[in-house]
Amino acid sequence: MHQRNGWEWKAMQFGIFTVGDVATDPHTGRTPTERERIKAMVAIALKAEEVGLDVFATGEHHNPPFVPSSPTTMLGYVAARTEKLILSTSTTLITTNDPVKIAEDFAMLQHLADGRVDLMMGRGNTGPVYPWFGQDIRQGINLAVENYALLRRLWREDVVDWEGKFRTPLQGFTSTPRPLDGVPPFVWHGSIRSPEIAEQAAYYGDGFFHNNIFWPADHTKRMVDLYRQRYAHYGHGTPEQAVVGLGGHVFMRRNSQDAIREFRPYFDHSPVMGGGISMEEYMEQTPLTVGSPQQVIEKTLAFREYAGDYQRQLFAVDGGGVPLKTALEQLDMLGEEVVPVLRKEFAAGRPAGVPDAPTHASLLAAREAERARTTEPVA
C-alpha cells in the first residue's frame, strides 16, 4: 500500500462478493424475505468498508431464489453511503443485457461514485435467462464476444456507427453520460470453465477473474495460465503483468471445530456443494475454508502457488442461508485478523513488474502518462 500523487494505491484488493440468494437457514428453519435479503446485502457492503476491505461486488440474477436483478441500483445506493469502497459486480450479464444500457448505467454510476466503479462481465449460470431477454443460449459465446466489442466502442468513441448480428444497427449514436474523465470502468471477464472468455480478456488486455470456489487448483491453474500466456501473446505485457482475480469461500470461528460444526448444515443443504463428497473432502479439493482465521490465511496465501501474483481476492461469506449477523461476524474477522496479514504476506517478495490492482485513479494516471509520452517533442 502506498501513495502516488495523493492517491492510495494497493498492490492487491480484498473484498466481498455475493450472489444474493434467498435461502433457508438450516439451523433455524427461517427464510428471510426479499426485502430482508436486499437490506442484508447493503449492510454487508457498508460493513466491508467499515472493516477496511476494498471491494463489494454483487451478482446479477433474474430468477428466484435470487434478488439482485438490478446491480447498478444497489451499487448506486451503496455509493451514496460509502467513501472508499470500490463498487463492482460478480456478474454483469454481457449476453442478455443490451450493451447500450450497460454503457449508460455504469457510466452514470461512475459519476455518482466518483470513479469507485468497475464490473465483471459474465454469461451467468442460469440457462433460461436467455429466452427471457430474447436471446438463444446456443449463441452464448458469440453474444459475449459481439456485445462486449460494441460496449468498448460505446465507452471509447463519442459517435458510433455499428452493425452486428444480435441487435439493431446504430447510426451516429452517442452513449450518455460519457465515462468519467473519459476513462471507462475497468472490466474483469469472469469465467469458471470457458477458455473463450479467458481468451477474450487477454485479447483486450482486460482483467480475468476466475471464480474458483467450486473448482480444484489444477483447473484454476490451467485457466489462469492460459489467460496469462494469451495476454502476453497479444502484446499487453509479460504473463506476470496480466491482471488476475480469484474467488474464495470462508466460514470462520476462533476454534476450527466450532466453525466446522456450525457450517456443516449449510454445506449439507447447499444445492451446489452438498449431496456429494464430504465437507472435509470438498475443502481439500476447492478453496472452501471452514476453520480459524489462521487457516483462512494459510489457504488463501497458497493460491499464489498456482495462480501467481494476482490483484484481487474476493470472499463469499453470506450465501446458503448464512444469517446477516453471522456474515457480519465473518467480516469483522476478515478485517481485523485475516486481510491485514494477507496484505503484508502477499506484498512480501512481490516482483516489481507486477502491476497494482486497477482503480479509476491508476487508469487515469496511465492515460495521462501515455499522452505525455506520445506528445513529447522529439529532440
Rank of each mutant, 00 (worst) to 15 (best):
V183R: 03
V183A: 03
V183H: 01
P184Q: 08
P185C: 07
P185Y: 05
P185T: 00
F186T: 01
V187Q: 00
W188A: 04
W188S: 07
H189N: 13
G190M: 02
S191F: 09
I192N: 10
I192F: 11
R193N: 15
R193A: 15
S194N: 15
S194C: 12
P195G: 11
P195C: 12
P195S: 13
P195Y: 10
I197D: 03
A198T: 12
E199Q: 14
E199C: 09
E199D: 15
Q200K: 14
Q200F: 10
Q200R: 13
Q200H: 14
A201S: 15
A201W: 06
A201Y: 09
A202R: 03
Y203W: 13
Y203I: 05
Y204G: 00
Y204Q: 02
G205Y: 05
G205Q: 10
D206F: 02
D206E: 14
D206L: 03
D206W: 03
G207T: 07
G207N: 03
F208S: 08
F208Q: 07
F209Q: 08
F209R: 06
N211Y: 10
N211H: 10
N212S: 12
I213M: 10
F214H: 06
F214G: 06
F214E: 06
F214K: 03
W215T: 10
P216G: 14
A217M: 13
A217L: 09
D218M: 08
H219Y: 06
H219V: 12
T220R: 00
T220D: 00
K221T: 10
K221P: 00
M223N: 07
V224W: 00
V224S: 01
V224P: 01
D225Y: 07
D225R: 12
D225Q: 14
D225F: 02
L226S: 10
L226Y: 11
L226K: 07
Y227D: 00
Y227F: 12
R228M: 03
Q229D: 14
R230T: 07
R230N: 07
Y231K: 04
Y231Q: 03
Y231A: 03
H233G: 08
H233N: 11
Y234A: 04
Y234C: 05
Y234I: 04
H236A: 06
